[in-house]
Design a binder for these strands. Structure first.
Lengths: 196, 196
DNA sequence: CTGCTAACTTTGCAATGCATAGATTCGAGG
DNA sequence: CCTCGAATCTATGCATTGCAAAGTTAGCAG
């Protein structure tokens, strides 16, 4: 789908790349479309041809994020064949992704209303979630659909919650000194695997 | 601390009240300071006397939010003397607050850098968290400090994670049909109390 | 009554998102 | 090769917004 260079190269991808770069260096502020355009040497309204609104650009960024997150989860899952450790490995991969892409991760879960509108975003988000759910489904003995869904949701809740709290730096030093992804993953694993 | 009316009434509180109202009706967009001022019949830069920056206003709003959340948690705790049900009641109170104050809740956990700077915000946020931690600490048998902190953090992670996912409407219908706070609280309680 | 201070207004500026109209360039069909 | 259409990009303009600086008004202490 990657169109080859027209006037100024593949502006669409270039915009997304640069936006991600900006987000990495300033995770708290959403990147300015005009600034992106200026740094790419195009006019201020050039992005308008590829993304009708700024929200569309951010949504496209979020889609990329979920694709990468899903890939990271799959990688973690396939490199840990043992179901005992698989869940913790998955949690760790999730937490690592969130900590290494704070701005992007925040964006992925804050697109707000756009989420309902964009089918693509829903699809990739769902795909990432399904990796987690399938792992949960297999790691524990026979479960009803409802049971499995509830467990998967609970597990997702824990990792997402801890990832968010860590990303927003809401966990203070006297609450938990070791806030590394691996330690948070350990806590997650212990909690989720509790009633095994 | 409430200064009585000067020129135009208690503008500071009026701004916060109206901002919260705006946030309730448009949870996705942060309120515009100029619009708030206009609706209150003051000049566009009048708020500047009370909040040097917009971020300061939002931080003050977040402080209010944490105060109300903490109060809600305390209320829930004291109305359920039984330690068995106390934790679930706490989780439900938390989830109810988040669902009834989506915009405010989002704000409370997205102030970003401001959090480090504002001691007041840190204090009230910590106070709300301590209610949860103390309940966890008492509900389970003797625990080391580290154990208790880890459990409290995990519990906070679950409720915060589920509250966030629900607030952003990221839980689809085929994942969990019943997304009411009480059902989510039930799931939370079962998970956290797992290794009792 | 005088002066001081907090609250508020006026004015102005820069950044930003977005719409519209026009120019440029690529590529396909003749 | 040439023409034309469509995609891409530019130019211009506008409205909203946050913010700063200087002046104005109102309450209050002495």
């Amino acid at each position: 789908m990657e169109k080859t260079a027209y006037h100024h190269g593949d502006l669409r991808s270039a915009l997304l790349d640069l936006a991600e770069e900006h987000l990495r260096q300033a995770p708290d502020a959403p990147p300015s479309v005009r600034t992106l355009a200026a740094e790419l040497g195009v006019s201020a309204t050039a992005p308008h041809a590829h993304f009708r609104t700024k929200s569309d650009l951010l949504t496209a960024l979020a889609v990329r994020g979920f694709e990468r997150l899903g890939a990271a989860l799959l990688r973690a899952k396939s490199s840990h064949p043992d179901p005992e450790t698989q869940l913790t490995a998955l949690a760790e991969a999730y937490l690592v992704f969130a900590s290494e892409n704070v701005g992007l991760y925040r964006l992925m879960f804050s697109t707000g209303t756009t989420y309902d509108a964009d089918a693509e975003l829903r699809r990739v988000s769902r795909a990432a979630y399904d990796v987690l759910r399938d792992t949960i489904g297999r790691s524990v003995a026979p479960l009803s659909d409802l049971e499995r869904n509830e467990r998967a949701l609970a597990a997702w809740g824990v990792v997402h919650g801890l990832a968010s709290l860590a990303a927003e730096e809401r966990i203070s030093d006297d609450t938990l000194a070791d806030r590394t992804p691996s330690n948070l993953a350990r806590i997650t694993g212990r909690l989720v695997a509790g009633s095994r």
